[in-house]
Simulated scan of single mutants.
Amino acid sequence: MPLPDADKKSPRVYTNLQNLDLDNVTFANIQATGNPIAVEEMNEDEMRRLVLVNLARLVTAGEWTGLLSAGGGGDWNPVISPYDWDGDDDAIRVFALPPFGTVSRNLNETAVQDDEIALFPFIAPTTGTISQVDFFVGGSPASGTGAINVGFYSDEDGLPKTFIGEFVLDCTSVGQVTQTTSSADVDTVLGTQYWVGFYADNVGSTPNFANMDWQDSGAPPTPGTQYGSGGVPTAIFKASAGGNATITDYTTFSPNTNNPINIGVKW
Rank of each mutant, 00 (worst) to 15 (best):
D21N: 14
P82I: 03
N258P: 02
V13S: 04
I261M: 06
G224M: 01
G228L: 07
T251I: 12
Y14V: 06
G71R: 10
F209I: 09
Y227V: 13
D170T: 11
T222C: 08
V189M: 10
L50G: 00
P260I: 00
F163A: 05
S182I: 01
G231R: 00
T145E: 08
T102W: 01
L52A: 13
W195M: 09
W214L: 09
G34P: 01
E116D: 15
L169N: 04
G228K: 12
W195E: 02
D23Y: 11
L107V: 13
R105C: 05
L22M: 14
S143N: 10
W195R: 04
T127R: 09
P221Q: 08
F253H: 11
Q31P: 03
E41K: 15
F100G: 03
V133K: 04
G231Q: 14
V150W: 05
Y153K: 04
T110D: 08
G264Y: 02
T225R: 14
P260H: 01
T188G: 05
N24S: 15
V79D: 09
L55T: 10
A200V: 03
W76C: 02
P82T: 03
L119M: 12
T172Y: 00
L97S: 01
N77A: 11
T60R: 14
P160S: 08
D21W: 08
L52W: 10
Y83V: 14
G74D: 06
Y227P: 01
D115N: 15
G228Y: 09
S69M: 13
D5H: 10
T172K: 08
S173L: 08
Y194L: 02
P223F: 02
F198S: 02
G197S: 06
P121N: 07
T33V: 15
